[in-house]
């Protein structure tokens, strides 16, 4: 059963067709990677899925229902969470507060509960805070709970962004270049984390340039170039696809070390 389906999705900015008639689907529990040259439209596709951009043509379906035109917060409520290519944490909020923002939409507290600090509001605030701390602990971020997001080392900021996305209780997690700027050890941790999230039932859709990560964890790979899908398949197929090598992988000097 496909959880997410893109059917002929196009996105046009003025004269530029950033995403052009792209179709593919993601099944429940899969890990799918999207690769392609810089500027190929990968992040644009993410933005179309999460409601940041309305699609120009085609349809994005979640569980078979169209989510076109829904604002981002509605998409989040339907169970899609994401991270950003250039980390977009709330820099001057603490790590635990960042995670609690993720809990915003499902918390029951109303404005007046908050203003009057009703016992109900206090209780929920306490519970959600404990829950957020627990989530941070599970991602080995417990020591940083009280630190401002910007004070965290870069690799941990990436992980905190994932924690914030998880706090929205998603079924589908979109990760935009989660390994960018991570060193080899941190990449290993990331791959372990993604595998663990999948084992807990999450479906994962990621954009990534690090071929070691992509080839190792993906069930399937979608390749975009100039907004079009040029290939789709399991890692071994995509790796040897001539068009993909020409447009994206290159001769592989930079990949040698990754694949050792």
């Amino acid at each position: 059963m496909a959880i997410l389906e893109l059917a002929g999705v196009s996105k046009r900015f003025g004269g530029l067709l950033a995403v052009s008639n792209v179709s593919f689907s993601i099944d429940q529990g899969e890990i799918i990677s999207m690769i392609g040259p810089n500027g190929a439209g990968k992040t644009t596709a993410f933005n179309c899925v999460t409601g940041l951009y309305p699609v120009s043509a085609g349809d994005v379906r979640l569980d078979g229902l169209s989510i076109n035109g829904l604002p981002p917060h509605r998409v989040t409520k339907l169970g899609i969470a994401r991270t950003f290519q250039n980390i977009r944490l709330f820099s001057y909020m603490t790590a635990v507060d960042n995670v609690m923002v993720g809990a915003h939409w499902w918390m029951k507290e109303r404005v007046w509960d908050g203003a009057l600090k009703t016992p109900r509001a206090r209780r929920e605030e306490r519970e959600v805070q404990a829950w957020a701390l627990d989530l941070l602990a599970q991602l080995e971020l417990a020591n940083y709970a009280g630190s401002y997001a910007r004070e965290l080392p870069y690799g941990l900021q990436r992980r905190l962004e994932i924690a914030r996305a998880l706090a929205t209780q998603p079924r589908l997690l979109l990760l935009d270049e989660p390994a960018a700027g991570l060193n080899a050890r941190e990449k290993n941790d990331l791959m372990a984390l993604i595998a663990r999230l999948r084992s807990e039932g999450l479906t994962i859709f990621l954009i990534e340039h690090d071929m070691r990560v992509v080839m190792e964890i993906s069930d399937r790979i979608v390749v975009l170039d100039y907004g079009e899908k040029i290939a789709e398949g399991v890692p071994t197929e995509v790796r040897t696809n001539r068009r993909v090598i020409e447009a994206y992988l290159g001769s592989g000097a930079s990949q040698e070390m990754h694949t050792t």
Binding site: N38, Q85, N86, A180, H209, M211, G250, G252, S254, Q255
Partner: peptide, 14 residues
């Protein structure tokens, strides 16, 4: 210099 770049571009930059 390679942050966030496609493999083919990483090669080019280096």
């Amino acid at each position: 210099p390679s942050l966030g770049l496609a493999p083919i571009l990483v090669d080019a930059i280096f």
